[in-house]
Design a protein around this nucleic acid. Structure first.
Lengths: 240, 240
DNA sequence: GAGTGGTCTAGACCACACG
DNA sequence: GTGTGGTCTAGACCACTCT
């Protein structure tokens, strides 16, 4: 059963996108929405809080909730959305290659890279994403094999997250991400066919991903061809 | 007057950082906290929601609120925090140069770059940040001069945000950010003294910043030396 | 003064985890 | 069953904006 506040959130979000509430217009007041949806103010406020967090509206005391006019029609790449889901939103032709699919056990050497304890059984998966015929990204994954069993190359070529969430019914909760610019290695040049020779760095997005019971189950290193990389974010000023 | 839920948030956050609640431990239940702080459950839940959003705790239905053990002791560079504030958190020696400080009026050419309408009066400010003796960042700002009057080079060398918020009492609300890797220009080489010649790109963080009445007042382009760039983020999986 | 969103209260029922 | 967090209600008072 979907919570009521989420239904209201989706309704209002849809109305914003359909221009029922155009950019810079004000939504009905919270009291009006209470009457309109036959619910309590707290429920309305939860729906509006979610719209606010995502950057669709700006709330102002004494005035109302105003629809934000976005400069760039961005879909945030932020917020832990997987590659597969991202590509569905867009209309790119994507081919995935799978140069590495193996199971390993963490050694002292691996430990520093993966941040998993020695002895942990892992899947080690390397995928190359070819987007509209350009070798764009190298995705390297280390995934705990005891928690995520029976991974197959077929699943890796589709969506690992869909398998984790829909088949295993595990809940992915949060990740710590770090974006840096790293020097190109010989292996990078092997995998990213067509990378111009004067490019000396790739943009790296490194993530440690955790389940909702806070167990750390996945380490991902995505290395992007620099001219194909873009990261968008909607950020609110901290209130502290 | 600070709202009660923020006081409770700060108290619990401090307790987490002081290891009163160590990593992986559970906080007292919401009902216990209600008794402890002599308040209502909703107020406690607001405080916990803020801790959850910032990645300090993970809430789990039927179990409790667990302190997240962070792999990297990160302070998120995310969330619209200004350069000046960031540097205060750390202990770097920072020198700011000010090669450009001028007022301009937007022309047809500028419009595409700044996204401001033709005729808008702007401050155009370029700052170079030298961190621990390394020329690390070029900050280029376009700021609406009608909204943010009387800017001076002295203010630009300190913190423009402190001036906006503490002197003008305006409220910075949100920004749209885009991170890309851009080709180095001749001007970049002039300003970023010491940039290695084999580096062909800078990491660019472009932001459109808005006030709480949603007016767009600042366009910022920060270009980082690639070996000095790092961007950290705590991201939760979208519930949609 | 009227209307707006921000905070706070006190209570209810539900879904889930665990013994 | 007991305890946990998740949702929802109905009401109150406050701070702010605008006329």
């Amino acid at each position: 059963m979907t919570p009521l506040y989420l239904k209201i959130y989706h309704q209002i979000k849809s109305d914003i996108q359909q221009n029922v509430y155009p950019a810079n217009a004000f939504l009905p007041s919270e009291n009006d929405l209470v009457a309109q949806f036959h619910t309590s103010r707290d429920t309305i406020r939860k729906a509006l809080a979610k719209l606010d967090k995502e950057g669709l509206i700006q709330k102002r005391r004494g005035k109302g909730s105003q629809v934000i006019a976005h400069q760039l029609r961005h879909f945030p790449i932020s917020g832990l959305t997987s590659f597969h889901e991202l590509k569905l939103l867009q209309h790119f032709q994507v081919v995935t290659e799978l140069p590495v699919f193996e199971t390993i056990t963490v050694t002292a050497d691996d430990q520093e890279v993966t941040l998993f304890p020695i002895g942990t059984p892992l899947y080690h998966i390397v995928r190359v994403r070819i987007i509209d015929n350009i070798h764009s990204v190298i995705d390297e994954d280390y995934i705990r094999a005891d928690l995520i069993p029976d991974l197959t190359p077929a699943i890796a070529k589709q969506s690992i997250y869909a398998y984790i969430e829909n088949e295993l019914h595990l809940s992915v909760a949060f990740a710590e991400k770090t974006i840096t610019a790293e020097l190109v290695t010989a292996r990078d040049r092997d995998l990213l066919i067509g990378l111009p020779t004067d490019e000396n760095r790739l943009i790296q997005v490194e993530s440690q991903v955790h389940l909702s019971d806070t167990t750390y189950f996945q380490h991902t290193i995505a290395r992007h061809r620099p001219d194909q990389f873009q990261f968008n974010e909607f950020a609110r000023r901290q209130t502290t």
